[in-house]
């Protein structure tokens, strides 16, 4: 949308560029517009949270970037090429894990490298490395049905990391976890992100989660889904959820989320407080 201020001055093209994107679903009862006029550029290495109430089209937007859905209008490009199909450059972590239940932890993590035709030795090396990165070395021979939710999600994350992905697309990945596990995984995800320099788009409906994680929060509003505002979060990491600046930003974001104001300017976290 034109009312979103341009990105900070760029020296390189964004890794993801969404321009004038709309999406309508057709059904017998007619057509339903889920997204309208989305413009969004995401730079390499950014951690972006898509925040919005349920039903505002966050998953749909993510699925278009992933290549599972096609845009009705406009384009989504990754590395300057329009997205046509899912591919290993975009790793997806689903809320319901989507692990292969007949494969062990290690085999799940090895899935991508194995299907890329690497040698068995190389596959094992990679799978070992990422199994260790998510702290599951003890559980390599377990099947997903023998793991807790938090461990399953670790496997899901390791599985896309092992596939040497550039972009991590996460759709409410921690939504089904208890608060403690969730906090732990958030911390681990930030560690991994800092180690790997991945670009992350993280969908959530939790304001706190967005403020804990993001460099940048894109608030979406519904009916039909569009970008309501786009804020930068300048807090240093690790972030202290009880600190005053953290709460100031949380308040601003929460207000923004609950208000139905006209789409606004790009805010910086600082001017809110």
């Amino acid at each position: 949308m034109s009312d979103i201020a341009p990105q900070k001055t760029e020296h390189h093209p964004p890794i993801i560029r969404i321009a004038g994107l709309s999406k309508s679903f057709q059904s017998e009862t007619g057509s339903f517009q889920a997204l309208r006029g989305i413009d969004l550029d995401i730079d390499k290495g950014e951690f972006v949270c898509l925040l919005g109430a349920s039903g505002c089209g966050k998953s749909t937007l993510l699925r278009i970037i992933a290549g599972f859905e096609t845009a009705s209008e406009g384009t989504a490009s990754v590395f300057d090429r329009p997205v046509e199909a899912p591919g290993p450059d975009r790793g997806i972590v689903f809320q319901d894990y989507a692990l292969f239940p007949w494969l062990t932890v290690h085999e799940n993590i090895a899935f991508g490298p194995k299907h890329a035709g690497m040698s068995a030795k190389e596959v094992k090396r990679i799978a070992d490395k990422f199994t260790e990165m998510v702290g599951l070395t003890e559980f390599i021979h377990h099947f997903p049905s023998q793991l807790s939710g938090g461990m399953k999600q670790r496997v899901a994350i390791a599985r896309v990391l092992a596939n040497d992905t550039d972009i991590l697309l996460m759709d409410e990945p921690f939504g089904a976890l208890d608060a403690l596990t969730r906090a732990k995984l958030q911390e681990e995800l930030l560690d991994i992100w800092q180690q790997t320099k991945l670009t992350v788009i993280f969908v959530t409906h939790s304001v706190e989660e967005a403020v804990v994680l993001a460099d940048r929060i894109v608030v979406m509003s519904a009916g039909p889904g569009r970008v309501d505002c786009d804020m930068t979060v300048d807090l240093p990491r690790p972030r202290d959820v009880s600190s005053e600046p953290f709460n100031a930003i949380r308040r601003t974001v929460a207000e923004r989320l609950s208000s139905n104001l006209a789409p606004g300017r790009r805010l910086t976290a600082g001017d809110a407080a």
């Binding site: 992933a66 290993p88 975009r90 790793g91 989507a98 292969f100 991508g112 299907h115 896309v160 596939n163």
Partner: peptide
């Protein structure tokens, strides 16, 4: 076969006959 698993396999770069052997068949067992 759970659509999600097919999506997961596709995003991991598994397609065509591989998809069948690695996902459809085990899921149908």
């Amino acid at each position: 076969v759970d659509e999600r698993l097919l999506e997961a396999a596709a995003m991991l770069g598994c397609k065509g006959s591989q998809l069948f052997r690695s996902v459809v068949l085990p899921a149908a067992t």
